Simulated scan of single mutants.
Amino acid sequence: MVNQSIYNSVLDLACELVNSSSAELTQNYWHAYQKLNELCEMHKGTSKDHPLQWEALADYTRNNKQALNIYLIAIEVATNLNLSEYVASSQLAIAERLLEAGNKYEAISWANKADENALRCSNLELRKEISEFLLVSANNT
């Protein structure tokens, strides 16, 4: 379970990022992004470290290579905390990024890993998202 204050901080910063994603608010976006990055780094390796913050940071990272590396951190933290739902969620996010970048077969591989981990959790919506991703990806071969 994620610490409520960390959850609220991540949620607030994510809302700020969404609300400032337009071109004229670029400075606000990067300010909020930097605050989220600082939050992640501050909690890294501590009892407050949680995959939610890392996945959120990766979600708002515009550079695909950097985002993929951050998702891997989220997976590592989730694995250490035995949070299969977060492992699966980050793996699906990697699959989505890879598909967007044109790496279809690698994307499907990551989605299959996500599917395996999602079977260990009770989040039916996540399991549905993964299944839909796999169906759409497989049909576009």
Results as ranks from 00 to 15, higher is better:
residue 113 K to V: 02
residue 73 I to A: 06
residue 114 A to Y: 05
residue 41 E to P: 03
residue 98 L to P: 04
residue 72 L to V: 05
residue 116 E to F: 08
residue 21 S to Q: 13
residue 138 A to I: 06
residue 10 V to F: 11
residue 42 M to K: 08
residue 22 S to A: 11
residue 52 L to H: 06
residue 128 K to C: 04
residue 54 W to E: 01
residue 9 S to W: 01
residue 130 I to C: 04
residue 101 A to V: 08
residue 30 W to K: 10
residue 123 N to C: 03
residue 26 T to Y: 05
residue 48 K to A: 07
residue 49 D to W: 02
residue 57 L to M: 10
residue 43 H to P: 00
residue 30 W to E: 13
residue 84 S to W: 00
residue 94 I to H: 00
residue 6 I to N: 11
residue 7 Y to F: 15
residue 22 S to E: 08
residue 22 S to G: 04
residue 91 Q to A: 13
residue 63 N to S: 10
residue 139 N to I: 02
residue 8 N to V: 01
residue 141 T to R: 10
residue 117 N to T: 11
residue 50 H to T: 02
residue 27 Q to T: 11
residue 14 A to T: 15
residue 88 A to W: 03
residue 87 V to H: 00
residue 64 N to D: 14
residue 40 C to N: 05
residue 97 R to I: 14
residue 20 S to Q: 06
residue 69 N to P: 01
residue 61 T to A: 06
residue 1 M to E: 11
residue 110 W to S: 09
residue 106 E to F: 11
residue 94 I to K: 12
residue 1 M to N: 13
residue 97 R to T: 09
residue 15 C to I: 10
residue 125 E to I: 12
residue 39 L to F: 10
residue 104 K to M: 06
residue 127 R to F: 00
residue 23 A to T: 08
residue 123 N to W: 01
residue 46 T to R: 03
residue 135 L to K: 11
residue 86 Y to S: 13
residue 101 A to I: 04
residue 83 L to A: 12
residue 39 L to N: 07
residue 17 L to R: 08
residue 51 P to V: 02
residue 110 W to Q: 12
residue 112 N to K: 15
residue 121 C to V: 05
residue 94 I to Q: 12
residue 4 Q to C: 09
residue 64 N to Q: 10
residue 114 A to S: 11
residue 79 T to W: 00
residue 133 F to P: 06
residue 107 A to P: 06
residue 48 K to Q: 09
residue 30 W to T: 00
residue 135 L to Q: 15
residue 38 E to G: 01
residue 64 N to A: 14
residue 72 L to S: 15
residue 101 A to N: 08
residue 81 L to S: 10
residue 135 L to E: 13
residue 116 E to S: 08
residue 124 L to W: 02
residue 87 V to I: 14
residue 44 K to T: 02
residue 137 S to H: 07
residue 35 K to Y: 04
residue 104 K to H: 09
residue 58 A to S: 08
residue 28 N to D: 14
residue 125 E to S: 05
residue 121 C to R: 03
residue 11 L to T: 11
residue 64 N to H: 07
residue 21 S to M: 13
residue 33 Y to P: 01
residue 33 Y to D: 00
residue 8 N to I: 07
residue 130 I to G: 05
residue 83 L to I: 12
residue 98 L to Q: 15
residue 117 N to H: 15
residue 15 C to M: 08
residue 4 Q to M: 14
residue 124 L to H: 09
residue 39 L to P: 09
residue 17 L to H: 13
residue 118 A to L: 03
